[in-house]
Simulated scan of single mutants.
Amino acid sequence: MTTNPQVETVSTGADKAKLVAAGLLVVGAVVAFYLLGRQDLWLRVGALLLILAAAVALFFTSENGKQLIAFGRDSVREVKKVVWPTRKEAVQMTAYVFAFVVVMALFLWLTDKTLEWVLYDLILGWKR
């Protein structure tokens, strides 16, 4: 049995500064959007998108951003390993699920009506 070693990431001061700067850029983008309220909409949206792009670029230069990119690459690699069902298999499994749902619905409806009849008509004697 193998044990996976615990991986600890150590954030440097530069990484923390990059994350704080990226956060401040996001806040600055929203502030700039509202400060340019008297300008044309295209200018406001352009400034917002430009500053947000700078924040994203700064985030991806930090260690957390690099880990996020690595996670995305690993996810794509894993998805490529998946053996996807054929169309026939997918249709068959979908039909099985629908059939099971119908059978279960009928069973629950029958159980409900039986309990209703036993409780209200036989035990309590309520007639509708």
Rank of each mutant, 00 (worst) to 15 (best):
G46R: 05
S62P: 05
A99E: 11
A57M: 00
F60E: 00
R44W: 00
L108F: 13
F100W: 10
V103S: 07
L24S: 12
F33Y: 14
V45D: 04
Y96C: 14
K81Q: 07
W109Y: 08
F59E: 00
Y96V: 12
T61D: 12
T114H: 08
R44F: 04
L52T: 08
R87F: 10
K88M: 11
S75M: 15
F107G: 09
V103F: 04
E89P: 03
V101E: 07
R87P: 04
E89S: 09
L35A: 13
V30D: 14
V31C: 06
A70V: 10
L25D: 04
E89L: 09
V79A: 14
G46W: 01
A99V: 15
V83L: 11
V26I: 15
L24G: 05
F107S: 11
V102W: 05
Q92M: 12
L41H: 05
Y120V: 05
G72R: 02
A57C: 03
A29F: 08
D40T: 12
S62H: 02
D112W: 09
L108Y: 09
R73H: 07
A70E: 11
K66Y: 00
V101Y: 06
L52R: 00
G65Q: 04
E116C: 07
V26K: 10
D74G: 11
A22C: 01
L43A: 11
V45K: 06
